[in-house]
Design a binder for these strands. Structure first.
Lengths: 206, 206
DNA sequence: CTGTGTGAAGGCTTTCACAGCC
DNA sequence: GGCTGTGAAAGCCTTCACACAG
């Protein structure tokens, strides 16, 4: 059942449910109904039930879902259980802000290394992780077998750096540069394009 | 023709094409084919043509599209022509990084005001815009009739601040807090959830 | 022959309706 | 009665196939 193909959008929502459920669990809430959870997640109850059904159902009819059970089920389905190391490339304003961001660790990710063309001048911002020169990137990534990277370099350099990352064995890139990266088959890219989001919003206000 | 309902996803891509075309125009490229443009945008040529057809077609068969004409057409369709003022709420690490980010201005957005619970201690980061206390938020937003806001406050305060923004007349929110905001009907919210993006990526690497 | 425009087909997601269990 | 699980229907988006213009 868990081996069925889960649609991309569903995976997004499962992660969302997962986080909400963790909060509920922390608050000692033991059970939740699809309608209550759906409301917090901003989806329809039926959709939530369909989504959960992808990872083998586990609700009690007439009662709702057991929060701890669901968290475990989602951990398995999403593979969230273990801590994922992440590399960061480009420690400018945005990069150093993300280095300080607590939200990643909370969700099971740790930025274990950071790189920049000018590691000296930006190191002040970093805090925990030392900022290394680009030269050592490939070696470090290979050494620790890091599979995920956050890319916050200027658009003009993004494609070149992405190529380096792929060569070093990176399999997934969270890209903040406002261009569409061309990467070979198995590599996955998610884009966070802030200007695009604003433009999209502005379209919908009449 | 422009008055037809354009699907949400298409609007996203139109903005993307718009940006790419602007770059082409800056490089004095006068004409482009759907396949060339599609490749850069990371979509299929047929999809690009379908998308462009939403804002009244304007390609020359056998030749391609005129870059300047397309830019103009998209300007009209997206309403990108005028500069949009934006308010920023929450000037922590992420907020101050975004204040310095040049990408917004390039796409026609200007952050004209910033607010924080502790405007003094964070002002150093801001640069151009002065950081004001939350108290003055409603007044300033109303005074300049700002319609869009970027929300970068901690998750625990996000909903409360969103309510204030809506009361002040904000119609669109770009939300970085990792929760789903509940807002009344006409208000639009786009979420940028960094941890969720990472979690999503990690799912797709086997 | 090249490359756009578009109806029709196909695929993917969401929603509905209702059966089944507590 | 309350709430989950799910096949069927509907809606939306993408892709195909091909007509048509330069």
């Amino acid at each position: 059942m868990t081996k069925e193909v889960i649609p991309r959008k569903t995976v997004y929502r499962l992660s969302l449910y997962h986080r909400i459920l963790q909060r509920l669990a922390a608050n000692k809430v033991m059970t939740v109904s699809s309608s209550a959870l759906a409301k917090v997640a901003g989806v329809k109850p039926t959709q939530l039930r369909k989504d959960l059904a992808y990872c083998g159902q586990m609700g009690t009819r007439g009662l709702g879902y057991s929060v701890p059970t669901l968290v475990t089920r989602l951990d398995e389905a999403l593979g969230t259980s273990s801590l994922q190391p992440v590399a960061m490339v480009g420690v400018g304003d945005l990069g150093s802000a993300l280095l300080k961001y607590q939200g990643f660790a909370r969700e099971g990710f740790e930025i274990v290394m950071a790189f920049d063309v000018d590691p000296g001048s930006r190191a002040a911002h970093s805090g925990v992780v030392r900022v290394l020169p680009m030269k050592s990137m490939r070696g470090e990534i290979e050494r620790l077998a890091v599979k995920m990277a956050i890319l916050t370099v200027p658009a003009t350099h993004a494609q070149a750096v992405a190529n380096l990352l792929v060569d070093a064995g990176i399999q997934a890139i969270l890209n903040f540069a406002p261009i569409i990266l061309q990467v070979p088959e198995p590599v996955v890219v998610n884009n966070v394009d802030l200007a695009l989001e604003l433009e999209n919003l502005s379209f919908f206000i009449r």
